[in-house]
């Protein structure tokens, strides 16, 4: 298993280093779930604002993961 990990981008060491970016990832995920599941009435009305709110957080999560992966490949 460890040999398999060593051959890939996320070997044990890289996984440990990149955990630092998992914290903001989970914070964003928490708010995403919160805003989808338990928001005041009328927030999820499909309007521009509700779509923007969700898109904004998802795009940040995507950007964070994407850059973390790109960095892990290089350093």
């Amino acid at each position: 298993m460890s040999r398999l990990l060593d051959d890939r981008v996320f070997n044990k060491e890289t996984l440990l280093d990149s955990t630092v970016n998992l914290v903001p990832f989970f914070i964003l995920l928490f708010f995403l779930v919160l805003f989808v599941v338990a928001t005041p009435e009328g927030w999820q009305d499909g309007s521009y604002y509700s779509i923007y709110m969700i898109t904004m957080i998802i795009s940040m999560i995507w950007g964070l993961l994407h850059l973390t992966y790109a960095t892990a490949k290089r350093v």
Partner: peptide, 8 residues
């Protein structure tokens, strides 16, 4: 809702 996204 915009504010909430930015707060997060």
């Amino acid at each position: 809702r915009i504010r909430s996204a930015f707060m997060a």
